[in-house]
Nucleic acid binder design. Structure first.
Length: 394
DNA sequence: TTCTACACTTAGCACACCTCGT
DNA sequence: ACGAGGTGTGCTAAGTGTAGAA
């Protein structure tokens, strides 16, 4: 925000410890903690107020590898799994309400549809001093353009000002409702004027215990992974299976719109790959010439620098050609994947949206070492999921 | 019913560190 | 041994959601 942030001192920090626990000694001589609390209803160990925005709190929490965080992570996924039992009824109900005469009911139905189908975030209200980003409930008229007969064109800035651009075919009930919500409004006005996240979540709670908007994101991400893994895993070696996993992971990242900026070195790296591929193609042509000569019993042509080459028999040349071809194909594939993933961030969904038990069980079933999928910190974070039964499905 | 304080999860980026081909 | 490129970790901002005050 263009402001200097003041250093945090012990006198800014409130500590939360057990009633009988010794108070940690203040490490800075002559200073003391702001306050000592004994609150076992919260998980934070310490907090202070942000010196730039004093009504904002900064917390020290336990690490992701702690059992406390692990437990709450597991509960998150169990709640998302529970949604499976309700989703059919929920979809039927909101589809009916696309044509509701009650305007709030109608808006809730359409908003829930978008959150379910497109994995949009809830969209809380924001203060004027915050970035101008939106989620589902805060979508503006200008963010959703209906294109007859039934296409919706989305274009808005979401969390972290990441642009969401998508064109989707929707049911005619949704299409008509969106047209109606837009009519007579300026582009900058709220699309859902009868709605906010509290009302939406209050409604969702009536449909399933503990249901909120964000549960749909977790549910959609995890069910997509589970589904794709079971459909696309068809034997092959470990490497091929890992590729299947990465493709499923990518699918989820795209649904959740997890992006990253293209690395500074990306285009240079692509050029280098292209050069290498061209070089290999040259080598290949030469090998082919040598082969046809060898078949006629002629020696290979001299190198460009004039030095003679080893005289190989046709079988050896055939093998070399096959090797070179394989190399070229691999590089072409790598190039494609790299270009394909240059703006897609795979990590975020792995860390936050994909039930690790899906991954662990799949690895067990298909004899893929879990370390091929989870790095050290993910293994620690997901320790609670490692003993899952191989037959586990989300 | 609305507002606000609080508590917690989710997010991308920078850069140190590691790995692997040459 | 070197360096390009990939990976992992730290950082902390930016979200979501709840409870209780107004």
């Amino acid at each position: 925000m263009g402001k200097l942030k003041k250093r945090i001192r012990p006198r800014d920090i409130t500590i939360n410890i057990g009633k009988d626990a010794p108070i940690p000694e203040c490490p800075i001589r002559g200073e003391r903690w702001k306050e000592i609390r004994h609150d076992n209803t919260v998980t934070w160990l310490a907090f202070w107020n942000d010196p730039i925005n004093p009504k904002e709190f900064k917390y020290v929490f336990l690490a992701a590898s702690s059992t406390l965080k692990g437990q709450s992570d597991k509960e998150k996924y169990e709640k998302a799994r529970l949604l499976k039992d309700y989703i059919h009824g929920i979809r039927t109900a909101y589809t009916k309400d696309f044509a509701s005469k009650d305007p709030m009911k109608k808006q809730i139905a359409v908003a829930t549809y978008l959150i379910d189908k497109l994995a949009l975030r809830a969209g809380n209200e924001k203060d004027d001093d915050e970035a101008d980003t939106v989620g589902c409930c805060t979508l503006k008229v200008e963010n959703v353009e209906p294109v007859p007969p039934n296409i919706l064109k989305f274009d808005f800035l979401g969390k972290d000002s990441i642009r969401y651009q998508n064109e989707v075919e929707v049911e005619s009930g949704v299409f008509k409702a969106i047209q109606q919500f837009r009519s007579g409004k300026e582009g900058s006005e709220d699309l859902f004027d009868k709605l906010d996240t509290s009302k939406l979540n209050a409604h969702l709670k009536e449909l399933m215990p503990g249901l909120t908007a964000k549960v749909f994101r977790t549910y959609n991400a995890s069910i997509t992974l589970d589904d794709m893994l079971s459909r696309k895993t068809n034997g092959g070696d470990v490497l091929e299976k890992v590729v299947v996993y990465q493709q499923a992971n990518k699918e989820v990242a795209i649904i959740c719109n997890h992006q990253r900026t293209v690395s500074k070195t990306h285009s240079a790296q692509m050029s280098r790959l292209n050069e290498k591929i061209e070089e290999l193609k040259g080598v290949l042509e030469e090998l082919k010439t040598d082969l046809s000569r060898a078949k006629k019993g002629k020696p290979p042509l001299k190198n460009a620098d004039g030095k003679p080459k080893r005289n190989l028999n046709p079988e050896a040349l055939e093998r070399k050609i096959a090797q070179t071809n394989a190399k070229i194909e691999k590089m072409e594939r790598d190039k494609e994947t790299k270009e394909d993933l240059k703006t897609v961030a795979l990590g975020t969904s792995k860390i936050n949206y994909l039930d690790p038990r899906i991954t662990v069980a799949w690895c067990k079933r298909h004899e893929v070492p879990i370390e091929k999928i989870f790095n050290k910190s993910l293994l620690a974070k997901f320790a609670w999921s490692m003993d899952v039964d191989p037959s586990f499905r989300f």
